[in-house]
C-alpha cells in the first residue's frame, strides 16, 4: 500500500532510528542482511512508514523468536512480519530454497550466505 505524504519525512525517520532501542534493532537487521548499519538504516527509511518505524523494536521482539532454526538464522520473520521488507510468500520461498540447497549437499554456511544475498537483492529490487 502506498501512503500519501505531505512532506519529506526522511529527517524525522532518522531521528526515530537514533534512539537506543531502535539503534539495537537496526544493527540486528544489518547483521541479518550482512550489510552495514548505515545501509540498513537507509533501507528502513525508504521502506517503512513513520508508525511502523516507531513500533519497530516491539514488532521485532514479537518476530525474533518465531520459526525454526533456518528461519531464525535468516531472520525471515523479522523481514516479513516485523518490517514488511519482503512479502511473506517471498520469504517462505527463500527459506525453501536454502533448505533445498542444504539437502542437495551444499554446506550449511554457504547455503545461508547465498540465501542472504538473494534476500538482499529481493529487497533492493
Amino acid at each position: 500500500m502506498e501512503y500519501l505524504y505531505e512532506k519529506d519525512l526522511r529527517r524525522m525517520k532518522l531521528l526515530i532510528l537514533e534512539s537506543r532501542r531502535h539503534h539495537a534493532v537496526t544493527i540486528e537487521i544489518a547483521a541479518i542482511l550482512g550489510i552495514k548499519p548505515q545501509a540498513a538504516r537507509k533501507i528502513l527509511i525508504e521502506e517503512c512508514d513513520m508508525l511502523l518505524l516507531e513500533n519497530l523494536p516491539a514488532r521485532c521482539d514479537a518476530a525474533r523468536k518465531k520459526g525454526n532454526e533456518i528461519e531464525q538464522k535468516l531472520g525471515i520473520h523479522m523481514l516479513t512480519q516485523a518490517t514488511h521488507l519482503i512479502s511473506p510468500d517471498a520469504g517462505q520461498k527463500a527459506v525453501a530454497d536454502v533448505i533445498e540447497k542444504i539437502e542437495s549437499g551444499l554446506e550449511k554456511e554457504i547455503a545461508l550466505e547465498e540465501g542472504r544475498t538473494g534476500i538482499l537483492e529481493l529487497i533492493r529490487s
Partner: peptide
C-alpha cells in the same frame, strides 16, 4: 535510558 510505552503498539495496529 529508553522507555518503550504500550500506546505506540496499539496506535500502530489501530491505524494499520
Amino acid at each position: 535510558i529508553a522507555i518503550q510505552t504500550p500506546s505506540i503498539m496499539n496506535i500502530q495496529v489501530c491505524a494499520h
